[in-house]
Design a protein around this nucleic acid. Structure first.
Lengths: 335, 335
DNA sequence: TTGTACGCGTTATCAT
DNA sequence: ATGATAACGCGTACAA
């Protein structure tokens, strides 16, 4: 069903049909209605490829995420989708499974698809070749969750958040606090949160904290449980994200420890599910949907004809907050 | 960066450049390598819109899902993405938030985007206007999770699964078994599972089962908890999906009931997270990634030039299984 | 083996 | 207000 066919059936030129859809004011109400009716009957839909080719504007935003299996990114995706629809853009998402090679490939694919800009969550902005490629192509982009002085980012101050959290735990009487982190090399967020942890530990006079790095999801629970059964076990576990915190809850159970009576556990991300668990998850809540939404808004702004290019200084640090849950309490006296 | 530019710089015609990428055998190795080199230097990527317009093949599959916030669909999406990439297709996802109007809109958008086919999870195939539209457009499609005699579907036998589950619970001594369901009108799966529940109850000689319909996520926990505190509370809760089961676990806790000692709770879907909870979730596990994958494979098959159109008879019923968890046990004697 | 030229469906320019 | 037509970037039939 093409514009040609509609024009023929309506007895007008293709130009008129095109105008009916794009500049309805420039056409007589009578013919306008008639063309619309014909189009409706024929089920005509303007061909997006042809339009993109002709206008050099796809009205599509590319989205690069590690995975949608982690609800934190699914939540951000919702925000992205909403904001994009709001601004009249479609979105084309790609997942990378935290693999740098896939980031590269995703960016390539999105470039070929003529996206006008991208919102990305990359492993590490510092070393990302995908970002280099993007910069070379001169395509506007915004990083979400990532934090880096050389790029426009929308994120929260993870480092500060974790440092404050450690202070809070210390205030609750905890002395042996350990961090549970995913693969540090795979994400700048993990690194920032780890730095925040060490900063908090030092500030609380607790020395160098121990970090348990659990690279593989499959073995995470048993590794954490093992650590909890070793001598000198921590009384509080600061987890780098909510999924790890949930696994830590499980590990504590397997180790025979009651939460929060014998051990406190905190997460990071604020996924909705945390509030339905028992115990409810104490966590540093990020405004995930907002992060997605604001990223798109920033991008769309830069996509306006005649807009300034996006500068790193446009970066946004959104507020986070500690979400009080049942998984965290004062340290037992004498423990 | 267009094919023109590459041709100019390489000193060949655009036809040759095109052939280098599409029919590399039909061009001399020497010129082929040289063109490739020039293309690489210039960062040339074939324009997908132009290619789609010219070939009338987009190599894109549209995907319509209720939401990605429910991990069951995020898991299916992974399978879809994997299978599509495998077959050389890109995917264009849309979420509908369980709203029929959005389904319609999504299908429209995907049609305009020239997708070659679609994989959809709709609210109810019976009443879906979006599916009608699709059929009219003559575009191949596969339904995932939905189950309907008039459409090609990839799903599990939810009704049988729940009926079997009720039999199992009855075998464990449970007599007062209730179902917790989301909005029945919003999903054919919920209806099937409900039918399975009633069938199982009747078969076990337990009469007509009571179904607690909790339409709103926000109030689900308190509604369930209220039911658990009313007289004649059930000793087992059969939940229509895992997220509801998780909320039921919470509700049981709030009602002061121990799981599974005082009440058994089962889910449906088999989201990965269920295995990390405490208690681990007893659930009917669907092969979510497989459902997505097989849906795409079915679709891709029908997309081959000269392939038969997709018939409802091509529908696939994949195996499910009861995943034994800690949230389910024998009924207390005398309860 | 390589090049020329047309057309895919649109939008936009320029006439009428 | 409306129509004729060029051009977007590409693939391919056909010519050389």
């Amino acid at each position: 069903m093409s514009i040609q066919e509609v024009a023929r059936q309506a007895g007008v030129s293709v130009a008129t049909v095109s105008r009916v859809f794009n500049l309805p004011d420039k056409v007589t109400p009578a013919t306008r209605d008639q063309v619309r009716e014909v189009a409706r009957q024929l089920g005509y839909l303007p061909n997006a490829s042809a339009r993109t080719l002709r206008t050099q504007r796809s009205r599509v935003i590319g989205v690069v995420l590690p995975t949608l299996l982690n609800p934190v990114f699914a939540e951000a995706f919702s925000g992205i989708a909403r904001a994009a629809a709001q601004a009249g853009y479609a979105i084309l998402p790609c997942t990378t499974d935290y693999r740098v090679a896939q980031e590269d490939q995703a960016v390539q694919q999105l470039l070929a698809a003529n996206v006008e800009g991208m919102v990305l969550v990359v492993s590490s902005p510092e070393t990302s070749t995908a970002l280099q490629r993007l910069a070379e192509a001169g395509l506007p982009y915004v990083l979400a969750y990532n934090r880096h002085a050389a790029h426009p980012c929308v994120s929260v101050d993870s480092e500060q958040a974790v440092a404050d959290l450690v202070a809070r735990l210390a205030g609750l009487g905890h002395r042996r606090i350990a961090m549970v982190s995913g693969q540090l090399a795979a994400s700048d967020r993990a690194q920032q949160r780890c730095r925040g942890f060490q900063r908090g530990m030092a500030a609380a006079g607790l020395g160098l904290g121990t970090v348990l790095e659990v690279p593989f999801v499959e073995t995470a629970v048993s590794e954490i449980a093992a650590r909890l059964q070793a001598p000198g076990r921590p009384t509080a576990l600061v987890c780098s994200n909510d999924l790890l915190a949930i696994r830590s809850l499980r590990a504590a159970h397997l180790a025979g420890l009651a939460v929060p009576a014998q051990i406190s556990i905190t997460g990071f991300d604020g996924i909705a599910l945390g509030q339905d668990l028992t115990p409810t998850l104490s966590t540093i809540a990020q405004p995930n949907a907002d992060i997605g939404q604001r990223s798109v808004e920033l991008l769309v702004q830069a996509l306006q004809p005649g807009a300034e290019p996006l500068r790193p200084a446009a970066s946004l640090t959104l507020p986070h907050h500690f979400r009080e849950g049942e998984s965290c309490a004062a340290a037992m006296a004498g423990s």
